[in-house]
Amino acid sequence: MKARVKWVEGMTFVGESGSGHAVVMDGSPESGGRDLGVRPMEMLLLGMGGCTAFDVVLILKRGREPVEDCVVEVEADRAETDPKIFTDIRVRYIVSGRGLDRAKVDRAVALSAEKYCSASVMLGAMAKITHEVELVDTAA
């Protein structure tokens, strides 16, 4: 796996993944940026959220659960001094479908958090990560 990050100007950078997709990263105006893209630390949270959402949906689909939607909200606190690592990360899953089995959804989240989501496992080595699951029954 590869990635390349190119400085554009000010505090704006373009990151390109090995698969050829690009993303703009920028800093806040206070740090010399123009607020043209996500912050690099936000990218870490987005990556973790995408990784675990991917896992949960895939596990539920393979288990033939009637999943219709999955939203993962990630919030984090950072240390106050450099390096300002994440100290606490809260992950909230909102999983929708008709008659989803709560135990299967909880198991999918646990499998992602503990085994399959590399981003969660790596960040969990430094930060305390908690998970919350909300089920939305679309049959109602």
Rank of each mutant, 00 (worst) to 15 (best):
V14G: 02
S17P: 01
G18L: 09
G18I: 12
S19G: 14
G20I: 13
H21L: 14
H21G: 01
V23I: 15
V24C: 09
G27W: 01
S28V: 01
E30R: 15
D35S: 13
G37F: 05
R39V: 03
P40K: 01
P40H: 00
M41N: 08
E42C: 09
M43W: 05
L46I: 11
L46S: 02
L46A: 13
M48F: 04
G49R: 08
T52V: 12
T52N: 05
A53N: 13
A53G: 12
V56W: 04
V56H: 01
V56E: 08
V56D: 06
L60M: 11
K61Y: 05
R62G: 02
G63Q: 13
G63M: 13
R64W: 14
E65L: 11
D69M: 03
C70L: 10
V72P: 01
V72S: 04
E73N: 07
V74P: 00
V74L: 06
E75W: 01
E75H: 02
A76E: 07
A76L: 13
E80T: 14
E80Y: 04
D82H: 15
R90Q: 08
V91K: 08
I94V: 15
I94E: 14
V95Q: 02
S96Q: 10
S96H: 01
G99C: 09
L100Q: 01
D101M: 09
R102D: 12
R102S: 10
R102M: 07
V105S: 04
R107P: 03
R107K: 14
V109L: 03
A110R: 14
A110S: 10
A110M: 02
